[in-house]
Design a protein around this nucleic acid. Structure first.
Length: 961
RNA sequence: GCAGGGGUAGCCAAGUCUGGCCAACGGCGCAAGGCUUAGGACCUUGUCCUUAGUGGUACCACGGUUCGAAUCCGUGCCCCUGCACCA
C-alpha cells in the first residue's frame, strides 16, 4: 500500500485551518479545557525526543475537544536567559559544530549570517518551533496566542507580576553568593558552558576559614571540617606559593594570592596590602582558635594555593593527607633544608584521637593509609581514603573527650555547632569557593562574589506554603508518585533568587532596573498570559496599555471597568472582553512538562498562582512526562533519532511518530529512541488502510451472532478507553485502538462476520477513536468511508447500551476457551484430528453448578452446605459418589473466583446450542472432517476412552482422533 | 549531601495505589505454517518445564502477613533520576 504521508498531512492540516478548528473562542455552552505544555527554552534545534510531551499534549486536547469540551491549547517559547546569547556567540565566532547543525537543519547562509544577533536567534527559532515542529505535527493550537518571554507585552506582564509579589510581601532582599567574572559580572555555571571556557560542572563549596594568630596577623585556613580543631597538630604552608597580607577592617590576614582575590570578592572591606614569603612562615608557630593551642607551621607542597585560602590546618588523626604529609617530611628531611624546622620537632608531633567511629580505631587516617598501603603524598588513593574517612566519621562518628563540651556528640551535630560558635566569636568566617577552576569566556577566573542586595521570592513563606500544599491535594497530578511528592517539595522550597545581573535576556526588574528578572521567576504565571497575548498580537492593545491597573482588572477583578479603561487608555468593552476571556478559560486544566520541572518549575508555578491570583484561578492539574532518549542518555546516531525533526517526519510520517510516542511506553518512563520501532508503527499505520479496504470490499454476509459479539466488544473497549482517559492514560487508548480493536476485527472476519451494517458502525466508531493520536490518517480513512465532515470535529464515541451484549461475549469466550483446550491436546498428542468429539456435562451437574453459583454469589462458599443441599435435591441420573466428588471440585473452583467473574459465569447459556452453531468453524479451524457434539448422558454417546464423564459445566470434555 | 524513582519472561514494556479471570496487556525478536512468490508487508500458530486439556516453577534475594501476593510489610543487594539563577 502506498500512502504519501507528507501530502496527506498537508491536505488535512490545511482543511483544519480553513475550518478554524484550532482557534479557541469563548462558547458559553461548552465547558472549557485549557492545557499547556511547559514552553521550551530557545537554545537551538529540538530533537525527536522533545516532541513526545508536545504530541501527547495535542492528543489529549484533541480527545477533550471530541468529548465536547471547548479546548484551549496555546504554545509559546521561553527566551529568557543566556541560551540565545550563547548561540549567537557561537555563530559569531563561526563555531564549526554550530554551523554544521544549522546547515543540516536547512538554514541558508544568508540566515546564518543574521544569527550572530541574539534577538534574531530567538526570532529564527520561534519560527522553526512553530512551523517545523508544532504545525508540522498537526497540532490544533491557537496560533494567534503565540507568545515569547522577550516580547514587550509579555515583559509588561512580568513587571506586573514582580510588582504584585512585592506588594504581597513575597519579595525580600538579603546577601547572596554567586559565581561571577571580575570583569563580566554574573555568569552561569552549567555543563553547557555558555558563559565559560571551562569548569561548567563546578559546584559551590562552603568552607569555614579559621583564623590562626601569628604575632599581629592571622593565618586564614579554609576547612570543611571545623569540628576537627581539637585534633590540630600543625599548620601547612606551601613553600613555593605566593602569599599576601590582606587588610580586613583593622586586622591583617595572611592567605594565598588566589585566596585573597576570592576574599576581596566576598568582602568589600578586604584589601591586599603586602606580599609575604612562605619561608617567613614556615618554622614559626601560630595559635589555634578556640583551643588556644600553639602549633608549628610546616611545609607541604600539596597545599594548593588555588584552593580555598591556600593554607591548611593539619589534623593527622582523621585526614590521610595530613598524616602522610608528616610521614613524608620525616622520611625526606631534605625537604626541610633551609627551613627553620628540625626533625626533633617533627618527631614530637602525635596525632590526637578526636572522633570515635564504629568500625574504626582511634586514629582512622593512620589506619586507612596502612590498610590501603598509602605511603607517598603522590599516591592517588589518598583522595579515596579521605572520602571514606570523612563519610563514615561524619555520619556515624561521635566526638571524643578531647572535645570538651562537645564530647559524645555526633559529628554531624558538633560540626554545625562549632562552626557557628567560631563564626559568631569572630574566630572564623564563611568562605566560599568553587570545587574546580572555572574560567570565563574572557579568560578571567570566575569567583564567588558576594551580592549584598540580592532579591528573592520568599517561597518559604508559611502561609503561601500551606495554601499551596492544601491546594495541591485538590489537584489532578500525574503520575501518582508526584502527587505525593509535591507536598514535600513545596515544604522544602526556600527563598529563591529571582533577579540577576549580567549577560542576560529578559525583563528588567521594575523595582530596580539594574536587575533582570531571572528565568524561572518569569515562567510561573504565564499560562494565563496566553489569554491576553492574542490581543497584543492583533494590536488591539499595546504594551503601554498594559499597566498595573490593567492586569489587576483582568486577572484579579480589581477596579471598575470604566475607570480602569480610562487609566490604561483602552476601550472598556475590550477590557471587559479580555477579563471575560480570562474568567472563561481560567483556571488552567493541565500543565504538562518534563520531569526536570518537578523540583523547579511546577512548585513555583503553583505557588505564584496561589500567591497572586484569586482562588478560582488556581491550576487544576499537572502531568509530568519522561523522555525519549538514546540508550545512553542523549539521542545518538547509532539507533537513529539524531536527524532534524522535519527529516524524521518526512521519513516516517507524522502519524507513525505520534503513535510511537503514545504507545511505546507509559508517559512516566524514559524510553530509548529506535528507528526500527518507529518503522513498525509506520507499518501499523499503513495496515489501517488495507484493513478498511478489505472490510469494505468483502462479500457481504447476513447478520449473525458474531455481529453481536463485535459490537459488544467495541462497546466495552469504548468504555475502557474513556475511563483510561479520565486519568490521561493515553497509552491505554493507543493499545485498545491500534492493537486490540484490530485483533477483534480479525476474529470477527475469521468467524465469518461480514455484515455491512456492523462493519460500517465499527469503522465509523473506530476511526473517531483514531483521531486524537493519528489525526491525519483518521481524516483520510473517514473520507474513504464516504464522510464529508472532518473527523477531528466529530464526537469521540461513548458507550451505548444497545451494543452491550454480555451473553454474546460469554459464548465467544466459551468457544475460544474450548479451542484453546483442543489446541493444547493436539499439541501434546501431536494428533492431526480427523474427528473431534465434544461432550457437554450432564444436566444434574448443570443444575448443581447453578445452585453453587447462587450460593457463592450470596457469599456462601462452604462445601458442606452445598453437599447437604445437593443430597436433598432430586438429581436424575446422578449417583451419590459422583455428586460428592463434583460438589467438592466445584466449590474449590468457585472459591477462587472474584464476584465479577461469578456474575458472568452464573448466567445461563446453552452449551450444546453454542457448540452446534460453531461446529463447522471448529472443524475448519482444526482441519477436522467431523465434529461431534453430544451430551454426557446421551445413551448413544461416542466415548472410546471414557472421558465423557469428566465434562464439567463450561468445560466440556474433548476427544480427538 | 538533599529529595525521589525503579528492578516483571530473549529485549522493550503494562500490571503494583484498590491482593484473587496473572503463566502475567501490548510491542519487538525468534520458530513453524499460510499468503504471496523477493515487500524490512500481511495472516495464523507457537515461544519457562512438564503434561490428552494436568501439574510444577516463576515477577531482584531472603523473611513475614493472608485461604490466596508480581501486587501489602520488613531486611538486603543492584540500577537510575532531579536539585534553584541551566531552562
Amino acid at each position: 500500500m502506498v500512502v504519501d504521508f507528507a501530502e496527506m498531512e498537508k491536505k488535512w492540516q490545511r482543511r483544519w485551518s480553513e475550518e478554524g478548528l484550532e482557534r479557541s473562542d469563548i462558547d458559553p455552552n461548552k465547558e472549557s479545557f485549557f492545557l499547556i505544555f511547559a514552553y521550551p527554552g530557545v537554545t537551538g534545534y529540538l530533537h525527536v525526543g522533545h516532541m513526545r510531551g508536545y504530541t501527547i499534549s495535542d492528543a489529549i486536547c484533541r480527545y477533550k475537544r471530541m468529548r465536547g469540551f471547548n479546548v484551549m491549547f496555546p504554545v509559546g517559547t521561553h527566551a529568557t536567559g543566556n541560551g540565545a546569547i550563547a548561540f549567537a556567540r557561537r555563530v559569531e565566532r563561526r563555531d564549526p559544530d554550530t554551523l554544521e547543525t544549522l546547515r543540516e537543519n536547512g538554514c541558508d547562509s544568508e540566515t546564518i549570517a543574521k544569527l550572530a544577533d541574539p534577538i534574531s536567534v530567538v526570532n529564527y527559532f520561534n519560527e522553526v518551533y512553530l512551523n517545523n515542529y508544532w504545525k508540522r505535527f498537526g497540532f490544533l493550537s491557537d496560533w494567534r496566542r503565540f507568545t515569547c518571554t522577550i516580547y514587550p507585552d509579555y515583559e509588561k506582564f512580568i513587571e506586573w507580576q514582580m510588582i504584585k509579589l512585592n506588594k504581597a510581601g513575597l519579595l525580600m532582599q538579603k546577601p547572596y553568593f554567586a559565581a561571577a567574572c571580575p570583569e563580566h559580572g554574573p555568569v552561569a555555571i552549567d555543563a553547557s558552558e555558555t558563559d565559560l571556557q571551562r569548569g561548567g560542572s563546578a559546584e559551590l563549596v562552603e568552607y569555614v576559614a579559621l583564623k590562626f594568630k601569628m604575632e599581629d596577623k592571622f593565618l586564614l585556613a579554609a576547612t570543611l571540617r571545623p569540628e576537627t580543631i581539637f585534633g590540630l597538630t600543625n599548620f601547612w604552608v606551601n613553600p613555593k606559593a605566593d602569599y599576601v597580607v590582606a587588610e580586613v577592617g583593622d586586622e591583617k590576614w595572611i592567605l594565598s594570592m588566589a585566596g585573597a582575590q576570592k576574599l576581596v570578592e566576598q568582602r568589600e572591606d578586604a584589601v591586599i596590602v603586602a606580599h609575604i614569603v612562605p619561608s617567613d612562615l614556615i618554622g614559626t608557630v601560630c595559635i589555634a582558635p578556640y583551643t588556644g593551642k600553639e602549633i608549628p607551621i610546616l611545609p607541604s607542597e600539596l597545599v594548593d594555593p588555588g584552593v580555598g585560602t591556600g593554607l591548611v590546618m593539619s589534623v593527622p588523626s582523621d585526614a590521610p593527607y595530613d598524616w602522610i604529609g608528616l610521614v613524608d617530611l620525616r622520611e625526606h628531611p631534605e625537604k626541610l633544608e633551609g627551613l627553620n624546622v628540625t626533625l626533633e620537632s617533627l618527631a614530637k608531633i602525635d596525632p590526637i584521637p578526636i572522633i570515635k567511629t564504629p568500625g574504626w580505631g582511634p586514629l582512622p587516617a593512620l589506619e586507612i593509609c596502612e590498610k590501603m598501603g598509602i605511603k607517598e603524598l603522590s599516591d592517588p588513593k589518598l583522595e579515596e581514603a579521605t572520602k571514606e574517612i570523612y563519610k563514615s566519621g561524619f555520619h556515624r562518628g561521635l566526638m571524643t573527650e578531647v572535645a570538651g563540651e562537645y564530647a559524645g556528640m555526633p559529628v554531624e551535630q558538633a560540626k554545625d555547632m562549632i562552626k557557628s560558635l567560631l563564626t559568631e566569636s569572630g574566630e572564623a568566617i564563611d568562605f566560599y569557593d568553587l570545587s574546580e577552576e572555572v574560567v570565563c569566556r574572557c579568560g578571567n577566573r570566575v569567583m564567588i562574589k558576594r551580592i549584598p542586595d540580592q532579591w528573592f521570592i520568599d517561597y518559604a513563606d508559611r502561609e503561601l506554603t500551606d495554601k499551596s500544599k492544601s491546594h495541591a491535594e485538590e489537584m489532578s497530578i500525574f503520575p501518582r508518585e508526584y502527587y505525593d511528592n509535591i507536598q514535600g517539595i513545596l515544604e522544602w522550597f526556600r527563598e529563591r533568587a529571582c533577579v540577576r545581573q549580567g549577560n542576560w535576556l529578559g525583563t528588567k526588574f521594575p523595582l530596580d532596573r539594574k536587575w533582570i528578572v531571572e528565568a524561572i521567576a518569569d515562567s510561573t504565571l504565564y499560562p494565563v498570559y496566553y489569554l491576553i497575548s492574542m490581543y497584543a498580537n492583533e494590536r488591539l492593545i499595546s504594551p503601554e496599555n498594559m499597566t498595573e491597573d490593567f492586569f489587576d482588572f483582568v486577572l484579579r477583578d480589581e477596579g471598575g471597568a470604566e475607570e480602569v479603561a480610562e487609566k490604561c487608555g483602552i476601550d472598556s468593552a475590550l477590557l471587559l472582553r479580555i477579563r471575560d476571556e480570562v474568567s472563561y478559560w481560567y483556571p488552567l486544566s493541565i500543565n504538562l512538562g518534563g520531569k526536570e520541572h518537578m523540583t523547579v518549575h511546577f512548585p513555583v508555578f503553583l505557588m505564584n498562582h496561589v500567591g497572586l491570583l484569586p482562588k478560582k484561578y488556581w491550576p487544576r492539574g499537572i502531568i509530568v512526562n519522561w523522555y525519549i532518549t538514546g540508550g545512553g542518555g542523549k539521542i545518538s546516531k547509532s539507533k537513529g533519532g539524531a536527524q532534524p525533526i522535519p527529516g524524521a517526519a518526512a521519513k516516517f510520517g507524522v502519524d507513525p511518530l505520534r503513535l510511537f510516542y503514545a504507545h511505546v511506553a507509559s508517559l512516566y518512563v524514559d524510553v530509548a529512541w529506535d528507528d526500527d520501532k518507529v518503522e513498525h508503527y509506520k507499518n501499523r499505520m499503513l495496515r489501517l488502510f488495507s484493513i478498511m479496504d478489505e472490510l469494505l470490499s468483502a462479500e457481504e454476509k447476513p447478520r449473525s451472532r458474531i455481529d453481536d459479539w463485535l459490537l459488544s466488544r467495541l462497546n466495552e473497549r469504548i468504555r475502557r478507553i474513556n475511563e483510561a482517559m479520565d486519568v490521561y492514560d493515553i497509552r491505554s487508548l493507543a493499545n485498545e485502538v491500534y492493537f486490540e480493536l484490530p485483533a477483534d476485527l480479525r476474529w470477527y472476519t475469521r468467524r465469518g462476520g461480514a455484515f455491512r451494517g456492523t462493519i460500517e458502525s465499527f469503522l465509523e466508531t473506530w476511526i473517531r477513536m483514531l483521531t486524537p493520536i493519528t489525526p491525519h490518517v483518521a481524516e483520510e480513512l473517514w473520507h474513504g468511508l464516504g464522510r464529508k465532515s472532518t473527523v477531528s470535529a466529530e464526537r469521540f464515541p461513548e458507550p451505548r447500551e444497545d451494543w452491550s451484549n454480555p451473553s454474546a461475549e460469554a459464548e465467544e469466550e466459551y468457544l475460544r476457551g474450548l479451542i484453546e483446550d483442543i489446541s493444547q491436546i493436539l499439541k501434546v498428542t501431536k494428533i492431526t484430528p480427523d474427528k473431534l468429539v465434544i461432550t457437554v456435562a450432564t444436566d444434574w451437574k448443570m443444575e448443581l453448578f447453578y445452585m453453587a453459583c447462587q450460593m457463592a454469589r450470596s457469599g456462601n462458599r462452604d462445601v458442606g452446605v452445598l453437599i447437604k443441599s445437593a443430597m436433598g435435591m432430586e438429581l436424575p441420573g446422578a449417583d451419590k459418589k459422583a455428586v460428592l466428588k463434583f460438589a467438592k471440585s466445584l466449590m474449590a473452583d468457585l472459591a477462587k473466583m472474584t464476584d465479577d467473574l461469578l456474575d458472568r459465569i452464573s448466567s445461563k447459556f446453552d452449551e450444546v446450542g453454542v457448540l452446534s452453531s460453531s461446529a463447522d468453524f471448529i472443524a475448519s479451524y482444526f482441519g477436522a472432517s467431523e465434529v461431534v457434539i453430544q451430551k454426557a448422558d446421551d445413551e448413544k454417546r461416542y466415548d472410546p476412552t471414557g472421558k465423557a464423564d469428566a465434562a464439567k459445566p463450561r468445560r466440556p470434555s474433548i476427544f480427538a482422533e
